[in-house]
Structure formats: structure tokens, C-alpha cells
Write a protein that binds this DNA or RNA. Structure first.
Length: 570
RNA sequence: UGGGGCGUCGACAAACGGCAAGUCAGGAGAUUUUGGAUCUCCCAUGUGGAGGUUCGAAUCCUCCCGCCCCAGCCA
């Protein structure tokens, strides 16, 4: 919201809303809605719309309805309704005691169709779908009137009743608005309003065998709920003339009261390296490319939630990307930034070694365990400290040792001294390898007892600080690392003749089975998030059981060294 | 070749006739017991192009170019 009087509204939609408040177009009322079709799970693109609609309601003291646009029983399911309810709540938005459903207005819609017929604004068409398509004309040529366009009011009304009563098979007829078959806007060439579908609906069951089209239903839903600003995406822009036409006709007939809602369109979100199309996401789930809707690689709300993203981070992201009419592809790095920004302040730190390398500290007493002090969050002193056990044998990260280090590498190497976080300075004195493979299996080191806690009394500096886990005290864990779903930034960047699945990243999931985490994590609660020092943010996955801890990597830390290495390769 | 939209930095995005904001990414440095975090600085002589109006144009006008959407009984 405006921080002071001189600031402008944050986007062009809020500009319209503020203006309508000023001119009292809706008696200074603001009422928006988020209208998902329950035919899939919500994703980050929906989050943008949710934040926009609920955000506007919040900013201007208005209301926002969560309304299911459930007008097509063939595609919709209760499972989707439940997941959507859950996702919206988790994102932190309050839609009152319950959600609303378009199907609750089916009686009114039926009545409205009858009225349109009576007023000469609609008719029942018995053309086949093919005939209708043929007679619709093309982008550059006008359509032709249906031979059934001139049916009498009585016949139309009778047919409408018969349609409702189930006397006609699917596809045999349709009710259409009577507007203008020559309109340059194809959406005005007598759009279909009702179709016959002998299908059970997840809420109304077998009550209906005709169902309203989106085109017809949506404006009515908005009007019935006294919506003021009906915010949707760009592809509906061409439908706005019909939206207004319909509502005007129904208002004329006294079925609706003015002022009528207005439709405003904005550009949907596109995110780099991922898919934001419901149809394609369904495909990923159904064809088993991912483990389910909540696979942590999915851009679904449930996937991101399981991965460990916070609602705060997602909301913040939605605020930062802005709202405009220009189609764009937002860099996923911005989402990651928002996640790090949030978690840096909130996530307690811990030490975990993902790819272990055994280190024996030769001059450290055997059998001794020291409890060392570690701070839980350097960003927030109120989060306190904890004890971390240290002993003679520890694990460090494989990546933290190089036998022949390049000059930019300042971690451990033969003869080199580094700090073990919160523990001691150690110096590498020996490298033990597997005789056959040549693989490094163990490091021998010595430590400097005077550097306990990680400071050297003589002011000696080391260039690196390593995280570690005491071998004797370690807790085993599985850690799942996630890469981008797609190998290319632009999901539309597909080769001729191939589809989006050719862009799927084969390495989007890596499961590390032999990780070591510090003992404090043994009882980590499902869903709790930690920063594993120097590695990233991690979240306890629901697959965790009494005998197996499972962590998801939410996002890495910013990694300057990785950047240097990558630059060197080129 | 109809109609509806949209073109400002690598990615988002402000500007409402008066000095092209901010954020992410990228680069340089400071600092640091996380190569994290933090801090400082750099990163558009120019807004798709060409004309025009104006003291003054990203903004107004004209023409052109490019991209997206619409021919479901999907939403």
C-alpha cells in the first residue's frame, strides 16, 4: 500500500481501483475474486493472481472471494478443490468461512439463459459442432447465420427445457447468444452459452445435464457476487466486449443490478527454467516424470511447500515481479533470492556433510569428546546457541579438499591450515588413497589446541572455514538435491517437432544417501527448515521416518567459489 | 490479409510533456569464524525504427517493424 501521500499505486490495476474509489463508481467498495477451475493443482502463476486479488482487497479494505469455476464436470474433481483450498490457506490468505462455487449459481444461469431467449438475445442452435465451426467464418472473413437463428421464442424455450430435462444427446444442440456473425471479434459471433453434457458434477451430482460455458458463466458469477473488479489474464481481453454485453442485457432485464463488475486483464507469470501450464504439469504427473503434484521440483504451491519454500518468500516474490500487461519471462533467480532472503533471517544454522571425506586428527586425544559452542543464527542473537560435539575423527565435505589446488582454491590441501567452524585450526599432513582406484579415502591432520573455538591467540589467519560432523556423533540422513525442471530458461524454446518434454532436465533430482548431520538434527520436525552452513537451506521431507531422516535442499547459498570454478572452465 | 493487446538495461519494472526510479542477475572493492550475510561503487548519453509537434518527447501525432492472443459444445 501507499507508504505516503505522494506515492502512486503499485500497478495499473490498483490505479483503476483507486480511481473507482475516488469517483465512487462502486460506492467506494472493492471486491475481487480468485476463480480457479478445480482441474489441477495451483502453481506459482496462480500465486501471482492470488496475491494480486487478495492483496488489492487487503490494501483497500475490500473483500476477495475464493470461487471455484466449476462449470465443466468432465475435467473437475474434488481432489483438486481440496488441494486448492489447502494451497490458498497455506499461502496465508483468508477467504472467509468457506469458498464459493459457480455451480451454486446454476439455477440462476439457467434462468438467465431463458431470459435472453425471451428478450431475443439468444437461441437454440441445432447445427453440429462442425457446422458451427464452418459457419463461424475465419479471422478475415465474416461468419454466416445459423439456419436455426430465427427460431421462435416458444420453440427456443421448449428446446431449452428439453435440453435441461435430458431429452437430447450430448452435442445435438447448444444455446447461443444472438449478436453478430459478422463481428470482427470472433468472440461476438454468437458465442455458445450452454452445452449438453450428460455427466455427473462433483458438487451437483446428476442434477444437471446441461452446463454453462465459461464465457457465459463467468460474468454472471462476478455479478452475482457483487464483484467490482474482475481481474484475469490477457487471453481474455477479446472476451471483454461479450462480458459487458451479457451483463448489460441481464441488467436491462432486471436480473442484475448496477453497477456491473468490470474485467481487467494483466499478463500471466512465466518463470524461467520451469513449466507453468496446467495441462503440461498434469502430463508430468500422469506420465510419471515427477513423483506427484507435490514433487519438490514442481512449481506447484504444494511442490514448493514440500520443498521448503515459505509462504512469505512466495508472497514477496509476487510483490516484486509487479503487474503489467507486457508478457515476460521472470528469472527464477529472483524467486531463489526471495527464499534466501527470508530463510537467512529465520532458519537456524546446522552443520551437515553431504559428500563425506573422513578426517583423522592424529594429535587429538582418542576417546575425548568436547562440546563446542555454536551460534544458531548469526543474523539473530535471540535464537541462541547450541553445543556441537567434536572428536578425533570427523567428516568434512569432499569438495573442501584438493590435493593439487588451483590458486583460487583456499580450502584444505596438503600442508595447508584451515579452520573447522567453532572448533580448531587443523593442518593437513597426509592423504590416504584407495590403492586400486586412487580415490582419496581419508585425510590425516593435526590440530592446534590453542585455537579452540576457532580463534588463534597469535592472530594467525586462515583463508577458509570448513563445516564438519564428528564421526562418532553423526546422525545419518538422506539429502535430496534439486535442479531446475528444464534445461533451458525459456519453456517455449523447443526444437521443431519436439515438445516441452525434450527440455526436461534429466538431472533435476539427486539423492545422496550417506550424509552426516550434527546430532541436534536427530529430532528435527517434519517441515522444519535449516541452513546447513556453507551449503544451503534444507527442509525435513515428509518421507522422514523414525529410522531415516530425509532432507530436501530448498535452495543453495550464493556460491562465489562455484562461480569462479565455472568461469575458469570456460 | 480481420480484431484485440504489447515493445524502456541480460531479466522484471517505474515514469502520466520537465534530469530514464528500484529490484534480480553481472562486475569491482570493504568486511567476515559460512567463498554466506552485510556495506560501498559500477552496469540504458537513451526507451523497437523513421519522421513530426514542442523551449522541452519514453510520454503527444503519423508511418513502419517486431512479438503475443482470438476461428472449443475448454477455461
Amino acid at each position: 500500500m501507499a507508504e505516503n501521500d505522494i506515492s502512486r499505486p503499485a500497478d495499473f490495476i490498483r490505479e483503476v481501483v483507486e480511481n473507482d474509489i475516488k469517483t465512487k463508481k462502486y460506492d467506494s467498495r472493492v471486491h475481487t475474486r480468485f476463480p480457479p477451475e478445480p482441474n489441477g493443482y495451483l502453481h506459482i502463476g496462480h500465486a501471482k493472481s492470488i496475491c494480486l486479488n487478495f492483496g488489492i482487497a487487503r490494501d483497500y479494505g475490500g473483500l476477495c472471494n475464493l470461487r471455484f469455476d466449476d462449470t465443466n464436470p468432465e475435467k473437475e474433481e474434488q481432489e483438486y478443490v481440496n488441494s486448492i483450498l489447502d494451497s490458498v490457506r497455506w499461502l496465508g490468505f483468508d477467504f472467509g468461512p468457506e469458498a464459493l462455487y459457480a455451480s451454486d449459481y446454476f439455477d440462476f444461469m439457467y434462468k438467465a439463459a431463458g431470459y435472453l431467449i425471451t428478450a431475443g438475445h439468444a437461441y437454440v442452435d441445432s447445427q453440429t459442432a462442425d457446422e458451427m465451426r464452418e459457419n463461424r467464418g475465419t479471422l478475415t472473413s465474416p461468419g454466416k447465420d445459423s439456419p436455426f437463428r430465427g427460431r421462435s421464442e416458444e420453440e427456443n424455450l421448449r428446446l431449452l427445457r428439453e435440453m435441461r430435462d435430458g431429452s437430447h444427446p450430448d452435442g445435438s444442440m447448444v444455446v447461443r447468444a444472438k449478436i453478430d456473425m459478422a463481428s470482427p471479434n470472433i468472440n461476438m459471433r454468437d458465442p455458445a452459452l450452454y452445452r449438453i453434457k450428460h455427466a455427473d458434477h462433483h458438487r451437483t451430482g446428476g442434477k444437471w445435464c446441461i452446463y454453462p460455458m465459461y464465457t457465459f458463466a463467468h460474468p454472471i458469477e462476478d455479478a452475482v457476487e457483487n464483484i467490482t473488479h474482475s481481474i484475469c489474464t490477457l487471453e481474455f481481453e477479446d472476451q471483454r466486449p461479450f462480458y459487458d454485453w451479457l451483463l448489460e442485457r441481464l441488467a436491462e432485464g432486471g436480473l442484475l443490478e448496477r453497477p456491473l463488475p468490470q474485467q481487467i486483464e494483466f499478463a500471466r507469470l512465466n518463470l524461467s527454467h520451469t513449466i507453468l501450464s496446467k495441462r503440461k504439469l498434469i502430463q508430468l504427473v500422469q506420465e510419471g516424470h515427477v513423483s506427484g503434484w507435490d514433487d519438490p521440483r514442481m512449481p506447484t504451491i504444494s511442490g514448493m511447500r514440500r520443498r521448503g519454500f515459505t509462504p512469505e518468500a512466495i508472497r514477496n516474490f509476487c510483490d516484486r515481479i509487479g503487474v503489467a500487461k507486457r508478457e515476460s519471462l521472470v528469472d527464477i533467480a529472483l524467486l531463489e533470492y526471495c527464499v534466501r532472503e527470508d530463510l537467512n533471517k529465520r532458519a537456524p544454522r546446522a552443520m551437515a556433510v553431504l559428500r563425506p571425506l573422513k578426517v583423522v586428527i592424529d594429535n587429538y586425544p582418542e576417546g575425548l569428546t568436547e562440546e563446542l559452542d555454536a551460534v544458531n543464527n548469526p543474523e539473530d542473537a535471540s535464537m541462541g546457541t547450541r553445543k556441537v560435539p567434536f572428536s578425533r575423527v570427523i567428516y568434512i565435505e569432499k569438495d573442501d579438499f584438493r590435493e593439487a589446488p588451483p590458486k583460487e582454491f583456499f580450502r584444505l590441501a596438503p600442508g595447508r591450515e584451515v579452520r573447522l567452524r567453532y572448533a580448531y585450526y587443523i593442518t593437513c599432513t597426509g592423504v590416504i588413497k584407495d590403492e586400486k582406484t586412487g580415490e582419496i579415502t581419508e585425510l590425516r591432520c593435526t590440530y592446534d589446541p590453542k585455537t579452540k573455538g576457532g580463534d588463534s591467540p597469535d592472530g594467525r589467519k586462515v583463508k577458509a572455514t570448513l563445516h564438519w560432523v564428528s564421526a562418532r556423533h553423526t546422525v545419518a540422513a538422506e539429502v535430496r538435491l534439486y535442479g531446475y525442471l528444464l534445461i533451458k530458461p525459456d519453456p517455449a524454446d523447443v526444437e521443431e517437432g519436439k515438445d516441452f518434454k525434450s527440455l526436461l532436465n534429466p538431472n533435476s533430482l539427486e539423492r545422496l544417501q550417506s550424509c552426516h548431520v550434527e546430532p541436534a538434527l536427530a529430532s528435527a520436525a517434519q517441515g522444519s527448515r535449516y541452513q546447513f552452513e556453507r551449503l544451503g537451506y534444507f527442509c525435513v521431507d515428509p518421507d522422514t521416518s523414525v529410522d531415516q531422516l530425509v532432507f530436501n535442499r530448498i535452495v543453495t547459498l550464493k556460491d562465489t567459489w562455484a562461480k569462479i570454478e565455472k568461469a575458469k572452465k570456460k
